[in-house]
Design a protein around this nucleic acid. Structure first.
Length: 298
DNA sequence: TCTTATT
């Protein structure tokens, strides 16, 4: 039927397709984008993410019957470097008023649902949003996932930080548990699944009660940073920075965005008992004098 | 008060 040379060339074509398929899989980089506003469309996602690089495809997951958005999507880039850039550019950026959670796509459900390195944080001050939590905890290790529940509508006072490693999670828990963050003493525990939690309640028969301790012996400041790039930029443009008095609540700045991601662990070994935010007018437009998100109170 | 995901 086929001449020998034809068979060889067909095989080569198949081999080529196989290799390209593999290559594409390796090269392609898939991002999971969660916490999307229900009105966000594929087109809006494409428009939003395209500045990062060439997008291979976008899959916004919808209810198969109603076609309404399920609030998450996969944005697939042709190049891994572009996906990395997209994550840097858009992680927790607001889209239709909601901070997007941008993570590497993890297709393995068991890995996704692993509670190793996962922390539950409660009694959070309302001023601490997902970004503040993310930047504060990023000082202790690589954060895979982070969320303040109810963020866009107003914090419900608790959230999650999932670290890449159990060590980083323990490190953060040991260092920050019981610290006063923005005026409230935070409680940090390892995350427990619903089943674990149920078992625990059954064992003790009562619900734990926690109290907001007003004593400000150990106080830290959580920094919402990334979200405020535009606000900071416009503030600087309007030259308003100088009008902020040191007594005002700290506002985030660009320097701290950079800081939190590159912080050395030596700086978080010794979190001072009393810390005070750096006044805004000292932060803007200046050089970085400290790489710690915690500032000593003199 | 203990998340998240159907390419």
């Amino acid at each position: 039927m086929f001449h020998e040379t034809q068979l060889i060339s067909i095989s080569l074509v198949l081999l080529d397709i196989t290799i390209c398929g593999r290559m594409n899989q390796e090269m392609m980089a898939s991002l999971y984008v969660g916490d999307l506003h229900p009105e966000v469309t594929e087109a809006l996602l494409a428009w939003t993410f395209s500045p990062a690089g060439r997008i291979h495809s976008i899959r916004l997951c919808r209810d198969w019957k109603t076609r309404s958005s399920l609030g998450y999507a996969f944005v697939n880039f042709e190049q891994r470097a572009d996906a990395e850039r997209a994550m840097e550019m858009f992680h927790f950026e607001l889209l239709m008023g909601r901070p997007m959670r941008v993570q590497w796509s993890q297709r393995d459900k068991s890995l996704r649902n692993s509670s190793i390195g996962n922390l539950f944080i409660k009694n959070l001050d309302k001023s601490i949003d997902t970004l503040a939590l993310f930047h504060t905890f990023s000082a202790f290790g690589k954060v895979l996932s982070c969320k303040v529940v109810g963020d866009e509508k107003g914090s419900e006072g608790y959230g999650y930080v999932h670290f890449e490693s159990a060590e980083a999670a323990d490190f953060a828990m040991n260092r920050l548990n019981g610290k006063v963050l923005n005026g409230r003493k935070v409680f940090i525990e390892r995350f427990k699944s619903r089943e674990e939690r149920k078992a625990q309640v059954g064992q003790w028969g009562w619900k734990p009660v926690f109290v907001d301790v007003a004593q400000q012996k150990e106080e830290c400041q959580a920094y919402p940073v990334h979200q405020n790039r535009q606000r900071m930029a416009s503030m600087q443009a309007q030259n308003l920075a100088a009008s902020f008095s040191p007594s005002q609540k700290v506002e985030p700045c660009l320097d701290l965005l950079w800081t939190a991601q590159t912080i050395q662990s030596q700086y978080v070994q010794n979190i001072p008992d009393v810390v005070q935010p750096v006044p805004v007018h000292q932060q803007t437009g200046g050089t970085i004098t400290s790489t710690s998100p915690f500032t000593m109170f003199e």
